[in-house]
Design a protein around this nucleic acid. Structure first.
Length: 426
DNA sequence: TCTGGGGTCCTAGGACCC
DNA sequence: TCTGGGGTCCTAGGACCC
């Protein structure tokens, strides 16, 4: 008789990622303070209007500081607060180092975000007992080698593993197997369920649904009627039903690429808006080429000084990865969309990709196309070798604006320090 | 509570075709 | 010419995640 093996899935997430990583770096690199032990936050720069709390230490939390709060308010609550600038390059390195550790245990790893990953630990002979031992081992290896703590949630699917890892913090290994759902999942406030957010919560409350258990016991047809497919999904989640696979390397396809920025000042002049859009387009186009894609859809988004947002998008007749072509379209979209009010924030986003090996350029033809391609390639190569600021368009000279804007570009920043590989620390 | 930046997916409504 | 209905594509915006 055949015995059906159950899947064993881990969800691993870094405790207080940004703050922990900055703290470990400060200890190892500067022999400095452990920010985790004092009231400290990771936050932006109020002067450039990016001043919000991204992460907080436990002592900072005790002062009543909340993630997402403006810095100025956080300082009022805790005058001695240590404010640390976010260092995304460092965070990416720490994240990569963690993934390298995971690879010693399985090759089925899905990176869910910079500080979270799913591991499929099923290997035909994996048992719950063995899995738990592995979880503790991974946790201790990461702490010894990289200096920070993680939570490990264990279950038979990704949803339950993710919920499990969130049940208690920090530095925990927690199981949430199907037979534990009633005891561990159902008592939770329904707002803590994955995919129940700001808009869904009030709808559920109106129906008298307060806990995950309440949702689970509600008639599916009623939920479906009121909340469509999203309702069905969260109802299934409340029962622990979820069966997506852990998508490994290469199986996680990029659907879109975008960059956006809050501008240091309110933009009222079209020329200034164009310059910001160009610097965003430079980054988006570079990432697009880096990924080997051509885009078929371009979107521009605008957030006014009064915080109302809107966007304008257009499907292209063909596909492109050319900075110049994209910029022309971006300008047109902006012109069509902009209502003339003061602008706080601008974004450029591309999607509907095809691989660039198919070579279906149709917007420009012949010589112009080849010229554009060569230019883009030359600039990309220079930026990869010498950093993203090695070359800029003349229009940015003395403009006080960045010639290329946005993150997630895999290109060096020349101002960036060289970070040591994090190993054998603490 | 109105503050960042990077994503994915879903839905409503209009345009257009048969 | 008007009315009906079904289907698909496209855009705008909402909702959710980290």
């Amino acid at each position: 008789m055949e015995i059906k093996k159950e899947n064993i899935i881990f969800h691993i997430d870094v405790n207080n990622a940004y703050l922990s990583w900055s703290a470990v770096y400060n200890i190892v690199r500067n022999g400095g303070l452990d920010y985790r032990t004092v009231p400290a936050i990771v936050g932006g720069d109020p002067k450039t209007r990016n001043g919000i709390v991204l992460a907080k230490s436990i002592p900072a939390k005790k002062c009543g500081i909340q993630t997402g709060e403006v810095l100025f308010k956080a300082l009022q609550k805790c005058p001695g607060l240590k404010i640390i600038k976010p260092d995304y390059a460092l965070y990416m390195k720490c994240s990569n180092a963690m993934i390298e550790v995971f690879k010693r245990y399985t090759d089925k790893i899905q990176r869910y975000s910079v500080d979270e990953a799913f591991l499929d630990m099923s290997d035909g002979s994996m048992t719950r007992e063995k899995a738990e031992k592995k979880a503790y081992e991974i946790q201790s290896v990461i702490h010894k080698e990289l200096g920070f703590t993680v939570n490990v949630g264990i279950s038979t699917n990704k949803l339950l593993a993710k919920v499990a890892s969130d049940l208690k913090k920090p530095n925990q290994v927690i199981t949430l197997y199907p037979e534990e759902i009633e005891a561990k999942l159902w008592p939770l406030p329904v707002g803590e369920l994955f995919m129940v957010g700001r808009a869904t919560l009030p709808k559920l409350k109106k129906m008298g649904i307060m806990t995950v258990g309440d949702l689970a016991k509600t008639d599916l047809e009623l939920i479906k009627y009121r909340m469509k497919s999203h309702g069905v999904m969260i109802w299934e989640f409340a029962h622990g039903i979820e069966n997506s696979i852990v998508r490994g390397n290469g199986e996680d396809i990029v659907k879109g690429i975008g960059n956006s920025t809050t501008i240091r000042f309110d933009v009222t002049d079209k020329k200034d808006a164009y310059m910001v859009l160009l610097s965003l387009t430079e980054m988006v186009a570079m990432r697009l080429r880096h990924g080997g894609f051509l885009t078929g859809l371009v979107a521009v988004s605008i957030k006014s000084a009064e915080l109302t947002s809107y966007s304008h998008q257009r499907k292209l007749f063909g596909h492109t990865d050319s900075t110049n072509e994209l910029y022309e379209i971006v300008k047109q979209l902006f012109d069509a969309a902009w209502q003339g009010e003061a602008i706080r924030h601008l974004g450029v986003r591309v999607s509907n990709f095809i691989p660039n090996d198919t070579y279906q350029y149709t917007l420009f033809d012949g010589a112009a196309l080849e010229k554009n391609r060569k230019l883009d390639k030359t600039i990309d190569d220079l930026r990869v070798r010498f950093g993203k600021n090695i070359i800029m368009r003349s229009s940015f000279l003395h403009s006080g604006m960045k010639s290329i804007t946005g993150g997630v570009g895999e290109v060096k920043d020349p101002d960036e320090e060289k970070y040591p590989v994090m190993s054998s620390m603490l």
